[in-house]
Amino acid sequence: MGKRILELDNVHSYYGHIHALKGISLYVEEGEIVTMIGANGAGKSTTLRTISGLLHPREGTVKLEGEDITHTDPHLIVYKGVGHVPEGRGIFPKLTVRENLEMGAFTITDPNKIQQRLEWVFELFPRLKERLDQYGGTLSGGEQQMLAIGRGLMQHPRILMLDEPSMGLAPVLVELIFDIIQKLNKEGVTILLVEQNAHMALSIAHRGYVLQTGNIVLTDSAEKLKKNEMVQKTYLGIE
């Protein structure tokens, strides 16, 4: 595979006095799907928040293609090509679907490009086109997730970070969302995927990290992780 797009080195993050990340080191190469699995509170979302600048680590470095972005403001990190679809989707409830998507393209000034992206997102999620003038808050959970991913794609990130895209969705929709993640990856988008649904995540990822209480306890290719005894027992429910 290619060069490392994203690299975290010994990152320690805190919420107030709570030591949430205790020395996370990981990397993502161009063109990969990398997944982070782990229980609630293991630090998966915190890792994503630290990468996108919503949270600045006290120790360690975050590098984007070799450039240090550890203390960069979140909106500037977006301009550098990091897309983050946050936990709980973060739909703007009182903006229409169209406006939500336009906000996704906030960094883009060329209206033709925005239009192209819009068409692309509609191709992936035809449902959004039907809901264009509806408020984001009135969509169903599945539609909101589509909107959140679609909005993340509007900015055309080089690396897209997805936080629990399957949460609260019907199994059919989970399949659809994961199909689309794979499709995006084939179109050249690098993906960092946080999931509780370890089975689905490992089935589409190239590599994975296993987090426990703010530490990375295991990392390997997705194939090998699936066969790992600990992963099978703890996250895949296989005795």
Partner: peptide, 8 residues
Amino acid sequence: ATASLMGI
């Protein structure tokens, strides 16, 4: 927070 993730 989400607004800042849009680049705002």
